[in-house]
Design a binder for these strands. Structure first.
Lengths: 254, 254
DNA sequence: CGGTTGCGTTGCAACACTTGCAACGGTCGT
DNA sequence: ACGACCGTTGCAAGTGTTGCAACGCAACCG
């Protein structure tokens, strides 16, 4: 909607690929070097980009700090965290918390497995939306029309033979998940990793987040992991209860 | 330098304080509502802001994902991580990795203490720059004039009676730190928490990052923590060596 | 129930701001 | 020492941005 801002913001994902010099940024944006320079300067003033010694631009520290604040403002996260820790203490596996936001599912918290074999994932990383157990729960709860729209637009990469192959299969899966109130990912993302997930609901019953327990086959079989389902659901329900109980609206005085 | 972009970017820190509606954003920016609306729309298209059901704007998911990528691009981090983990396995305490960037010191990695009592800190959170041990190391290595400039501009909040009180005291401390090649924070930030830190240097000898071990008094006394100094320094040196050894330039084909 | 207030939204005309150009200055490599 | 390359700056042209005023909509209240 605003050309100038649009261009400036487009620089950031570009720099996320790695440091780039002025010429490169200008080329990728399709604008004159001087234009790119001025945009970069503005971004720099705000700390969104950083200029390293070799004069190339990198993403800046303020971006990281800001993202941090963004996450801390999510109250689900704060409420859920102690529950996630306790669950981890009980079962020992990796515990994740995720939310949905405009075509993306994002991990917003994580407690690491206590077993030596750990799965790779990072807070802030967009989730493999077509296969992750938490993603299924979050998408399953979207209003009918929105859900269809999102599902149609997705890609369905075959991470493994058991990955969700296409939109139709995914819709069927989502229907099942919505009905049963929990979800799994049995080797759909990484051959040897399974997850069980349960939804966290707000006072109105809508799913506001989802949590999961993940473990590799070498530690527990899928069947063994499934025996944790009641525990996971109880934990999710506990968080739901606490979350709907009060609405701790952080008031910022004008 | 670019008014439009400048305004747009100013919206983000503003939203970091908490969700805000259109009117509020316009007021804070000092522009007409329609202008603010268009800026917000552009930010929205790029996923930097999110519109919640009550129509108010929040920081968006893409911001978090971008910050994530920004951190993964820092090669010190990647190299250091396994060393941090090993150090944590050896001593059991919380291990931090931090870098300096334009007047801020930022934690970019962390391995949690294995003791039940943990200190609060978060990756991405700007560090208490006047007292943290890692901050001292990073600032101590700045070129004379830049160091003075930064130190003068800082605030010196008295978190505890042992916090650095003012610029002069800080400069003295930095001189000491530079000379001895390591730093401590003994209850300068939180009364009961102590840290020992060591610098990580690039091939040219400049400090590129700093790492620290932190533990509360209730677990180990300051003296006991200091006995870990050799171990911390060895770890830092190991990282330095590996970091200077190769320059794994991530090439992105145009 | 109708009027009022408050909010987000849109089309438009004026003009401020952005844009690309051309030229400069520095650094590196030959 | 020369040329090539990259970042930087002043300027004139014009495009994109801005504030305004008017609209639609919901909530609130008399």
């Amino acid at each position: 909607m605003s050309q100038t801002v649009d261009r400036a913001l487009s620089i950031l994902p570009l720099l996320a690929e790695g440091p780039a010099d002025l010429g490169r940024v200008a080329d990728r944006l399709g604008v004159h070097k001087s234009t790119a320079l001025r945009l970069l300067r503005t971004l720099h003033e705000h700390g969104f980009v950083y200029r390293q010694e070799d004069q190339r631009y990198r993403l800046g520290a303020r971006l990281i700090a800001l993202a941090q604040e963004a996450m801390e403002n999510l109250d689900v996260r704060e409420i859920a965290h102690p529950h996630l820790v306790r669950l981890n203490e009980q079962c020992g596996h990796t515990v994740h918390l995720a939310v949905y936001e405009e075509n993306e599912v994002l991990y917003i918290d994580k407690v690491e497995s206590r077993y030596p074999v750990r799965m790779y994932s990072r807070i802030g990383k967009p989730v493999a939306i077509t296969v992750a157990a938490v993603a299924k729960l979050l998408l399953a709860d979207l209003p009918e029309n929105e859900r269809r729209a999102v599902v149609e637009k997705l890609d369905y990469p075959m991470y493994t033979p058991r990955s969700t192959p296409n939109a139709d299969g995914f819709l069927t899966e989502l229907a099942k998940v919505r009905e049963q109130g929990w979800a799994t990912d049995l080797g759909g993302h990484e051959e040897s990793i399974n997850c069980v997930a349960a939804p966290i609901r707000g006072a109105d019953g809508r799913v506001v987040a989802a949590m999961s327990v993940s473990a590799p086959n070498v530690v527990v079989t899928a069947d063994e992991l499934l025996t944790l389902l009641p525990l996971v659901r109880r934990t999710a329900d506990a968080i739901s209860g606490e979350y709907s109980g009060r609405t701790p609206v952080k008031e910022v005085t004008a």
